[in-house]
């Protein structure tokens, strides 16, 4: 159970409540967000979120799958830092 920092790169619809849903999904599992960076993309209706979390590979995979299930999430990728 090796905990490592993963950076999640999320492209989401720029709508109210989206950030709260994503952050809630992660914090609700007891995981702490280390860094959070939200900003616009060239397409004003899409935001990009960079989220660094400390977790095991299995948990992070599960979080990514749950994030992809969200109605306003367009794409999620991740890499180990």
């Amino acid at each position: 159970m090796n905990e490592q920092i993963y950076r999640l790169n999320c492209y989401v619809e720029n709508k109210p409540g989206v950030l709260a849903r994503i952050v809630g999904l992660i914090s609700g599992r007891g995981y702490n967000i280390q860094t959070l960076n939200v900003g616009p993309t060239e397409d004003g209706t899409v935001s990009r979120m960079k989220i660094d979390i400390l977790g095991t590979e299995k948990v992070v995979e599960q979080i990514i799958l749950q994030l992809r299930n969200q109605v306003n999430v367009i794409e999620v990728t991740s890499r180990r830092m």
Binding site: G17, R21, G28, V71
Partner: peptide, 12 residues
Amino acid sequence: GVARGVSKHCFL
């Protein structure tokens, strides 16, 4: 805010 964690989706 309250319903988010127990629903599939919420619209305001």
